[in-house]
């Protein structure tokens, strides 16, 4: 039995394995400490952070839907000050690559968050959450608009030396255009997909199942759509792509990688079981052996079409 190489690179970022904890489904990391060794995971992206603390939405915030879940947490968060004082010291004892998911109600707020955290050496990269509703634009999200996407990424690249990962929303007509706009803005990588807009109604009370009415759908239900979008974006841009959407097994990881992802993020699986990612990472080498694959890096975008 050979020992497959599960390391992977996303531009300058070298991950021990392709499994990154997705933002918003893994808290700030400390919640997971009693269940897993955070040094075993490929990378970690903390909960989306605005400049100031945010209360988030009222409950109910979640509802299980077929093969997935609907959520509208409302980006509850502790703000940059507490993040710097409480969360960064926590991560000092681990060497896992750490990303911070950056949120903003306006273009200026994204910049303020990055500016505040730029000097923190423990942070390896920023993932830019382009799906936040923009307050000044009547709730429109920058991820729906190539120009906004381009200008936010460009603005951040001007003030940051760190790796910038642009996280895209799937709720758009032509995702390749948004991906290209992020690439032209200087993004080092693209992660996709964020959740799909969804809704669920209690037919007895005629109320929505979550207080916010609309929420984001995640979990295995969205996996085929996510694989398709990852492949489309992989074909459209030349920067690396990080795949997200309903991954719950080592097989799912390889599927995204073959479709074009250089690494993947695990979200809802961590909600189902805090040890899901570790179980997936443990299984990857034996699965690769079984399929006679030596290196994750050889599989990236190795999809065979035609013939």
């Amino acid at each position: 039995m050979s020992n497959p190489n599960i390391k992977t690179k996303v531009a300058n970022l070298e991950f021990k394995n392709p499994v990154i904890f997705a933002s918003g489904t893994s808290g700030y990391g400390y919640e997971l400490e009693k269940y897993i060794d955070l040094n075993q995971i490929g990378g970690f992206i903390s909960k989306g952070i605005y400049y100031n603390p945010r209360m988030g939405n009222e409950s109910p915030r979640i509802y299980e839907t077929p093969c997935g879940m609907l959520n509208a947490i409302g980006l509850q968060g502790i703000g940059v000050k507490r993040f710097k004082e409480e969360i960064i010291p926590f991560w000092e004892k681990y060497d896992t690559l750490l990303g911070v998911n950056v949120a903003g109600e306006s273009e200026e707020e994204y910049l303020k968050v990055v500016e505040y955290l730029e000097s923190e050496n423990r942070i390896d990269f920023f993932e830019i959450n382009l799906s936040c509703p923009n307050v000044q634009a009547g709730g429109k999200s920058p991820s729906w608009d190539p120009e906004k996407t381009n200008s936010i990424i460009r603005g951040i690249k001007d003030i940051s030396k760190k790796h910038i990962m642009a996280k895209l929303s799937p709720n758009v007509t032509y995702i390749e255009e948004i991906a290209k706009a992020a690439e032209e803005g200087g993004a080092d990588s693209i992660s996709l997909v964020n959740t799909f807009v969804g809704m669920s109604v209690d037919i007895k009370t005629r109320k929505p199942h979550i207080k916010n009415v609309f929420g984001g759908v995640s979990g295995p239900a969205i996996k085929p759509m996510a694989v398709a979008l990852v492949h489309k974006v992989f074909k459209a841009v030349s920067i690396p792509v990080v795949g997200i959407g309903g991954i719950v097994s080592a097989e799912d990881v390889l599927e995204f990688i073959i479709a074009g992802a250089s690494a993947v993020q695990i979200g809802t699986a961590t909600i189902i079981d805090p040890q899901s990612a570790i179980k997936i990472i443990d299984k990857l080498p034996s699965l690769m052996n079984k399929l006679s694959y030596d290196k994750i890096e050889d599989l990236i975008g190795s999809l065979k079409t035609g013939g």
Binding site: S26, M55, S59, P60, M69, T270
Partner: peptide
């Protein structure tokens, strides 16, 4: 209603009076 039970998802939040004011 809870999804994770471990604190990672923030799904089960409730409005509570804390030392720092009302928080979810």
């Amino acid at each position: 209603r809870m999804a994770c039970g471990t604190g990672v998802c923030y799904g089960c939040a409730k409005k509570i009076r804390t030392e720092d004011g009302i928080k979810m």
